[in-house]
Amino acid sequence: QRITLKDYAMRFGQTKTAKDLGVYQSAINKAIHAGRKIFLTINADGSVYAEEVKDGEVKPFPS
């Protein structure tokens, strides 16, 4: 399943989102408010992988 960072954070909370991605909650808040195009893939085992689309390139998040 693929979902935006904002939607994932709204569904699970910023604290869990940060923990799942290995970053601080403040980084999640800042990324959402900056309007960054970050998409999360939720794997069947429950693990989460995030990618950011920037300038036409897709890069892992966090980099």
Rank of each mutant, 00 (worst) to 15 (best):
S26D: 12
K19W: 09
I3L: 13
T15D: 15
G35K: 13
A18N: 01
I38K: 00
G35P: 04
E51V: 12
S26I: 08
G46W: 05
I38E: 00
I28N: 00
Q1I: 14
I32Y: 02
F39L: 06
P60V: 08
G13V: 01
T41W: 10
K30L: 12
S47A: 08
E51L: 08
K19P: 00
F61G: 02
L5M: 04
Q14S: 14
D55F: 09
L40P: 00
A44R: 06
K16Y: 02
G13H: 01
T41A: 06
G13R: 01
N29I: 13
Y24R: 15
D45Y: 05
A27P: 02
A44P: 15
Q1N: 13
S26R: 08
F61S: 02
K37F: 11
S47M: 07
I32G: 01
D55R: 09
P62H: 04
T17V: 07
V58L: 11
M10H: 13
D7K: 06
Q25K: 15
K37D: 14
R11Q: 13
L40K: 00
I38H: 00
N29D: 13
K19H: 12
G35D: 13
K16R: 08
V53L: 12
R36V: 05
I42V: 11
G56V: 04
A34M: 11
L21C: 04
Q14M: 15
A27M: 13
L5V: 02
K30Q: 14
K6P: 05
R36M: 08
L5T: 01
G46A: 05
G22I: 03
A34I: 08
K6R: 12
A18S: 07
Y49G: 06
D45S: 06
E57N: 11
N43A: 11
H33C: 10
V58G: 05
R2L: 11
V48F: 04
I28A: 01
T4W: 09
F39V: 07
D55Y: 08
L40G: 00
Y49A: 08
Y24H: 15
I3V: 12
L40H: 00
S47L: 07
K54L: 15
S26T: 10
T4H: 09
I42K: 04
I28W: 01
H33Q: 15
P62V: 05
H33T: 14
S63F: 09
K6L: 12
T4K: 08
G35I: 03
I3M: 15
T15M: 14
Y24W: 12
N43W: 11
Q14A: 15
I42Q: 06
A44L: 11
Q14F: 15
V58R: 08
L5C: 02
E57M: 13
E51N: 07
D7H: 06
A27E: 15
Q1S: 11
L21V: 05
Y49L: 10
V23Y: 04
F39Q: 03
I28G: 00
I38N: 00
A9Q: 08
A50T: 02
K37G: 08
A44W: 10
E52H: 03
Y49D: 08
S63V: 11
E57P: 03
L21W: 01
I3H: 06
E52Q: 04
A50K: 01
T4Q: 07
L40E: 00
R36T: 06
T17Y: 01
V48I: 12
L40T: 03
A9Y: 09
I3D: 03
V53P: 02
D20V: 11
G46S: 06
F61K: 02
D20A: 09
D20S: 06
Q25V: 15
R36C: 07
A31G: 03
Y24Q: 15
P62K: 05
V53K: 06
A31P: 01
N43G: 10
D45M: 05
I38M: 01
V53H: 13
Y49I: 12
E52R: 01
V53R: 06
F39E: 04
T4R: 08
P60F: 06
